[in-house]
């Protein structure tokens, strides 16, 4: 099931990230992984470049709320930070390769936690 978050608002002061929401505000690790695999190097780089400068602000923002009790707009923002966690190694370590270089077929690796939200 695709649980893409369709609403578009982010918390105040994060408006500049709004355009990334439809593509990258993904609620589960499986969705974020699939999005990364199916993105081009350019798309990964653009996402990384847009979110990295705001990462610490995002993490400070989500810590205003108790664990797992984020309002919808903050949760949406948080899932974009989680997407950055998924994407970062590909920019920082794998020279922009959307796949893990020299790796086992990712589609054969089953994550038991893969469909958990958050």
């Amino acid at each position: 099931m695709n649980s893409t978050i369709t609403a578009t608002s982010l918390p105040k002061s994060f408006e500049t990230l709004e355009t990334l929401v439809p593509q990258w505000a993904l609620a589960t690790q499986n969705e974020r992984q699939q999005k990364r695999i199916n993105s081009s190097t350019g798309e990964l780089q653009a996402f990384y470049d847009a979110v990295l400068p705001r990462l610490e602000d995002i993490l400070a923002h989500v810590d205003k709320f108790p664990l797992n009790e984020l309002p919808a707009d903050s949760f949406r923002l948080f899932t974009m930070a989680l997407s950055l966690a998924e994407v970062a190694p590909h920019i920082e370590l794998y020279k922009g390769d959307p796949k893990v270089p020299h790796s086992f077929d990712e589609s054969r690796f089953v994550a038991e936690h893969g469909d958990v939200r958050g």
Binding site: V62, F78, L82, A88
Partner: peptide
């Protein structure tokens, strides 16, 4: 905290990738 939850996600994704390299 939520930020720690994020940090775990990063560490775990990287570890998964290492296991993909191992297998």
């Amino acid at each position: 905290t939520n930020s720690q939850r994020w940090a775990l996600e990063f560490a775990q994704c990287l570890q998964r990738n290492a296991w993909l390299e191992d297998t």
